[in-house]
């Protein structure tokens, strides 16, 4: 697609979303300009705040990368939340090990690997339910989300509770040396940034320039036809679910080792659902995903300014995100309709 068309699409989506949100704000008697300024000031106008944006961007981008795989395979992987939670559990499991004798860096790497594994397993369960049990991945995923949420609550109130306490506050903090290294004046681990960039590049490479990526696309586009080329669509879908789940799990691992330094009930922070919006707004394409993630991360991190400086509820940022995605879907829909000649 030509660049002009892309640009036109972006402008159309932005104008549509912005005018919808502005209209809503004006009806509520709030100046859209003030909101915009507040959000921007709260996200990009200082290094520390940009760090906070990044700490949302990293797990969000990881989840989105995972979703790119499953969407490409024609799957609605709604179970990202559960996969993030399982990844967080997997990482916590490793970080709680006593007397391993391993250096912290090795233990942290192991924890991240374990989070990928745990998330992947959860993704695989949804995949199995679909390919073997005939359960639609939407229902399977939703069900597994509830199971994962239940599991994390049980762990926090049960086997992993703090000494003498039964609280939903979360597990004990990990020892300081098991926090991912953060330089002075930073709030986000450089290692996590590097990791997510590598993952994104790999995702892009695999999906757009590898045989496996082509197979995923074929299996997603037309499973019946793909069989003619010797592709086993069920197997490909299953693998996409494992990768998708694994990357979501990795996001959980990052949440545990870099952000919260412990396991908490809402460890997934809703990134699973947010990532669905990101990928939908990106039109299921790889390239726009990191930018949209950044935009959403700015909205999420900046939104905290709304109650502090304007006494406006921060859920407004959710409204803006929703408006963006709806406008996105509308514009795609209109353009597709035009192309079909309606």
């Amino acid at each position: 697609m030509s660049i002009i068309l892309q640009m036109r699409r972006i402008v159309m989506i932005s104008v549509l979303a912005l005018s919808a949100v502005s209209l809503l704000l004006m009806l509520l008697g709030i100046s859209p300009l003030t909101i915009g300024i507040t959000l921007a000031k709260g996200s990009i106008f200082s290094w520390l705040k940009f760090n906070h944006v990044l700490s949302v961007w990293i797990p969000l981008l990881l989840c989105s990368c995972g979703l790119l795989f499953t969407f490409r395979a024609g799957l609605w992987n709604i179970g990202v939340e559960g996969q993030v939670i399982c990844g967080a559990i997997g990482a916590t499991l490793v970080l709680r090990l006593d007397n391993t004798g391993l250096p912290p860096a090795a233990l942290l790497s192991l924890a991240l690997f374990s989070s990928f594994l745990a998330g992947g397993l959860w993704g695989a369960s949804a995949g199995l339910l679909k390919t073997r049990g005939g359960v639609n991945e939407i229902f399977g995923g939703l069900g597994l989300n509830f199971v994962a949420q239940g599991a994390v609550l049980w762990l926090i109130l049960g086997p992993w509770k703090r000494a003498g306490m039964a609280s939903m506050s979360g597990t004990d903090l990990f020892p300081r040396e098991l926090w991912m290294w953060v330089p002075q004046g930073w709030r986000v681990a450089p290692a996590a940034i590097v990791l997510v960039i590598i993952i994104f590049l790999l995702t892009s490479l695999i999906l757009n320039a590898s045989q496996f990526g082509l197979k995923i696309k074929a299996a997603g586009f037309n499973p019946q036809a793909s069989r003619l080329f010797g592709i086993r669509p069920n197997l490909i879908c299953f693998m996409a679910m494992i990768i998708g789940g694994g990357l979501a799990g990795l996001a959980g691992g990052v949440q545990v080792s870099c952000v919260y330094h412990r396991l908490i009930p809402s460890i997934s922070s809703g990134y699973g659902y947010l990532a669905l919006l990101v990928v939908m707004l990106a039109g299921y394409k790889v390239a726009p995903v990191p930018i949209i993630c950044l935009l959403f991360a700015c909205l999420a991190a900046g939104s905290i300014q709304l109650p502090i400086t304007l006494q406006v509820d921060s859920s407004l940022s959710g409204v803006i995100q929703g408006a963006l995605v709806l406008s996105g879907l509308l514009v795609y829909g209109l353009q597709q309709g035009k192309r079909r000649g309606h």
Partner: peptide, 18 residues
């Protein structure tokens, strides 16, 4: 964390200090 997902106390303190 339930009401403000992804926002931590140290982050908010950074902000209030700024």
């Amino acid at each position: 964390p339930a009401d403000r997902p992804g926002i931590t106390v140290p982050m908010l303190v950074d902000d209030l200090v700024s």
